[in-house]
């Protein structure tokens, strides 16, 4: 109920102000159409795009590479994070490389991936995968080590196997961190998808944006931006809901906590 009431005010007032400012800008202030489309112009481009199926196809493509890379990157991130948390020597050996790679802005290797993996969908999914990998890796590592040491001692005192301790204690204790990592990586994944499409693509919302910039078609560009926002908000909302549902016992771990590590 609280959620709905909060939505009411924020969802009506803020857009109303924005829309009013927009009308003023394109009306009395006469900002030219190639800088800012009219609201009607954008709406027309949006409706046309989805009616003709072109924007639908672009949205589907971007969604696909984002989710594909997100799933792969998160899975790899969790696996390596778990290995590093469980085997300390491995952690010490790999730490310098991981720190170095982490410091690198991942989008910078998009052109290299193009050279190595080609112009197809694969190179794009790989970029998203790399983007999604690190937040999950770091949060898995931190989360798995956050389990109460007494609980681990207790399990050891009962000669519980490492495997049992891992699944019964460490993973559930890490769940909150893990979801925080997933939320960060989903956002980064979407960035990766758009950059990959900027660099080379004939389809996707990123491609639509770079093309409409060349043709100064801001109406279409705004339609694509709006679609991207909707996609990002949807993914984020779904993850937040899953977080609340799965990690029902702690409702305080927030994205901002994890975001600093990304």
């Amino acid at each position: 109920m609280r959620l709905i009431r909060r939505f009411d005010s924020s969802l009506i007032v803020a857009p109303a102000v924005l829309l009013a400012a927009w009308f003023v800008a394109v009306g009395p202030l006469a900002v030219p159409g190639y800088v800012l489309p009219t609201p009607q112009g954008m709406l027309k481009a949006l409706v046309n795009g989805y009616a003709s199926g072109e924007l639908t196809r672009d949205l589907a493509f971007t969604t696909f590479i984002t989710l594909g890379g997100f799933v792969c990157g998160s899975a790899f991130g969790f696996l390596l994070g778990a290995l590093l948390a469980e085997f300390k020597p491995l952690d010490r050996m790999t730490a310098p490389y991981i720190i170095a790679f982490q410091a690198l802005p991942k989008v910078a290797i998009a052109p290299l991936l193009l050279v190595w993996l080609g112009f197809g969908i694969f190179s794009k999914i790989v970029l998203v995968t790399i983007m999604c990998f690190f937040p999950v890796l770091i949060n898995t590592q931190i989360g798995l080590q956050a389990a109460p040491p007494e609980l681990i001692d207790l399990m050891r005192a009962f000669s519980a196997s490492r495997w049992l301790i891992f699944w019964k204690i460490r993973v559930p204790a890490a769940a909150g961190h893990l979801f925080a990592g997933l939320q960060v990586s989903a956002i980064l994944g979407l960035i990766g998808a758009v950059v990959a499409e900027f660099v080379s693509s004939t389809v996707g919302l990123g491609h639509v944006i770079s093309q409409s910039a060349l043709s100064l078609d801001t109406g279409l560009m705004f339609s694509a931006l709006l679609s991207l926002t909707a996609l990002g908000v949807t993914i984020n909302t779904l993850l937040r809901m899953a977080h609340h549902r799965v990690v029902f016992w702690e409702r305080r771990v927030t994205v901002t906590e994890a975001a600093t590590e990304a």
């Binding site: 109460p148 007494e150 609980l151 005192a157 019964k168 204690i169 559930p172 702690e250």
Partner: peptide, 11 residues
């Protein structure tokens, strides 16, 4: 064993 903290599994 009983510790100072209950150390239960919250989940």
């Amino acid at each position: 064993i009983v510790f100072q903290q209950p150390t239960l599994m919250p989940w």
